[in-house]
């Protein structure tokens, strides 16, 4: 849409970035007589070259160049445990560099122009203004398949209570987390500045006695999401190099595969046994890790069927992952995530 390329006239002369002239970042030819000549050599996403922003924003740019949004290492880390050494080399060459890495966010993806997804984008966020944040036009585009739509309720369930109270992504996922702390993390789970419910919700300060007792009894055994996820969230399955994954709503409680002891919400991930068959990767260690992983479901509610009644879990076992629900031909590790609710002593 042409509006996505329309610059707000009022910014000219006011914004220091624009004062440097278009060609200082975008190259091209700003004295050309025709559209074609003007766009010859044009750099559409200048901040893909992070050194450009580093000219003035050196510290942030240096940290950001090592952050997960830029390196996209998280996607590689998730799959590498399933691959043999030779397969990993092939994966890096045929998949990671050509596909995963193309998804990285440049500085401009969050601060200037909304990232296009599937070739569709809204273009400039605010007439080429360098904005601090606009989660609905930035985060939502890349994370709109799962968490953002869960968060806003657009996926069909009820919206996250934090969203209803006016909180947006950056209120929990701080700019320090987004820009990175200079460490080249391999997974979002390792990031020290990632949010935690307890940063705001300290245990022992609950106004209701029942809530205080429940938190005390379940601490270290059940994650916050385990009880406070409002319901079904999006699960993707059967992703292949040549065809994309299928999505469906689902809810599953099981053991967190990272620690093997905490009950939490599990999300089915889209990697199937033959996901990379088309590029000659069999995944010789496919069964080393499960297909279900702990997920911070972004549909938090204060009251859910599990907070209202002990029976929901301890008698009825609602939402607990069962052997019958497991995907067909999945990883052998999936079985280890199944847990039976503890009966109540009445």
């Amino acid at each position: 849409m042409y509006l996505g390329y329309l610059i707000d006239k009022r910014l000219i002369g006011k914004d220091i970035h624009l004062a440097m002239g278009c060609a200082s970042c975008h190259k091209g030819n700003d004295v050309a007589a025709t559209r074609e000549e003007a766009h010859k050599g044009l750099v559409k996403r200048p901040s893909d070259n992070i050194a450009l922003c580093a000219r003035c924003h050196g510290k942030i740019a240096d940290k950001y160049s090592k952050s997960l949004h830029y390196t996209t290492y998280g996607q590689r880390h998730g799959i590498m445990k399933r691959l043999g050494a030779e397969e990993l080399k092939r994966f890096d060459d045929k998949v990671f560099e050509q596909s995963c890495r193309s998804c990285h966010a440049s500085c401009g993806s969050c601060h200037v122009k909304a990232p296009p997804v599937g070739g569709i984008g809204i273009g400039l966020i605010k007439g080429h203004k360098f904005i601090r944040k606009d989660e609905g036009k930035t985060c939502a585009f890349c994370h709109g398949g799962r968490v953002y739509t869960e968060y806003t309720g657009e996926y069909g369930g009820r919206a996250d209570v934090h969203y209803q109270k006016g909180k947006m992504c950056i209120d929990c996922h701080s700019k320090e987390e987004m820009h990175g702390d200079g460490t080249r993390y391999l997974s979002k789970n390792d990031v020290k500045t990632r949010p935690a419910c307890k940063n705001c919700h300290k245990t022992g300060r609950e106004t209701k006695l029942t809530a205080r007792l429940s938190h005390r009894n379940h601490e270290g055994k059940v994650s916050c999401y385990g009880c406070h996820s409002g319901g079904e969230y999006r699960n993707c399955r059967d992703c292949h190099v040549e065809s994309h994954s299928q999505a469906q709503p689902g809810f599953a409680l099981g053991l967190n595969p990272r620690d093997g002891k905490t009950l939490t919400t599990l999300r089915l991930i889209p990697t199937a046994r033959d996901t990379f068959k088309a590029v000659g990767i069999k995944m010789e260690r496919y069964d080393a890790v499960p297909n279900y992983w702990d997920t911070p479901a972004h549909n938090i509610r204060k009251r859910t069927p599990r907070t209202r009644s002990c029976d929901a879990c301890h008698v009825e076992g609602k939402g607990f992952l069962t052997k019958e629900q497991l995907i067909k031909n999945g990883s052998k590790m999936n079985d280890k995530l199944i847990v039976k609710p503890k009966p109540l002593n009445r």
């Binding site: 042409y2 610059i7 000219i12 030819n29 004295v31 003007a38």
Partner: peptide, 21 residues
């Protein structure tokens, strides 16, 4: 465009940009 303000001229004029898009 030849006057050196080519980018700004087109990219700040909605109607013009629409015709070129």
């Amino acid at each position: 465009a030849a006057s050196g303000k080519g980018c700004i001229t087109c990219h700040t004029d909605g109607e013009l940009l629409k015709s070129l898009y």
